[in-house]
Amino acid sequence: MTFKLIINGKTLKGETTTEAVDAATAEKVLKQYANDNGIDGEWTYDDATKTFTVTE
């Protein structure tokens, strides 16, 4: 399955996707991606669209 991350950061905005077997696995990968890029904020997840959003 494809999961999307929408980034609403102070210095970085955009989106990325990852392939994962489930939402929990995708969340780990996407949170690591955000952490690697210095993004720390509030996370939400929409199961209907398989989209995570992080807002700083």
Rank of each mutant, 00 (worst) to 15 (best):
M1E: 14
M1S: 12
T2I: 14
F3K: 00
F3L: 01
K4E: 03
K4S: 06
K4T: 13
K4M: 09
K4C: 06
L5Y: 02
I6V: 14
I6Q: 05
N8Q: 10
N8A: 10
G9N: 08
G9R: 05
K10E: 11
K10Y: 15
L12F: 15
L12E: 10
K13S: 09
K13P: 07
K13F: 12
K13N: 13
E15G: 06
E15K: 04
E15S: 12
E15A: 06
T16G: 04
T16Q: 08
T16I: 14
T16N: 05
T16E: 06
T16D: 03
T17G: 05
T17E: 11
T17I: 08
T17Y: 14
T17R: 08
T18W: 10
T18H: 07
T18A: 11
E19G: 05
A20W: 02
V21M: 11
V21Y: 11
D22Y: 03
D22P: 01
D22T: 06
D22L: 04
D22W: 03
D22E: 05
A23M: 14
A24Q: 10
A24L: 13
A24N: 11
A24W: 15
A24I: 13
T25Q: 12
T25G: 09
T25Y: 08
T25R: 09
A26K: 00
A26D: 00
A26Q: 00
A26I: 02
E27T: 04
E27K: 07
K28E: 09
V29M: 10
L30Y: 05
K31D: 02
K31R: 14
K31F: 06
K31H: 08
K31I: 07
K31Y: 06
Y33C: 04
Y33M: 05
Y33A: 03
Y33H: 06
A34N: 03
A34S: 05
N35F: 12
N35E: 15
D36S: 11
D36R: 09
N37L: 14
N37K: 12
I39L: 07
I39P: 01
D40W: 10
D40S: 09
D40F: 14
D40Y: 12
D40P: 05
D40T: 13
G41M: 02
G41K: 01
G41H: 01
E42I: 14
W43D: 00
W43C: 02
W43E: 00
T44H: 12
Y45S: 01
Y45I: 01
D46T: 05
D47G: 11
D47P: 14
D47R: 08
A48T: 15
T49F: 05
K50R: 13
K50Y: 10
T51P: 00
T51N: 02
T51G: 02
T51Y: 03
F52R: 00
F52G: 00
F52W: 07
F52C: 01
F52Q: 00
T53M: 10
T53Y: 10
T55N: 10
T55I: 08
T55R: 06
E56V: 14
E56Y: 11
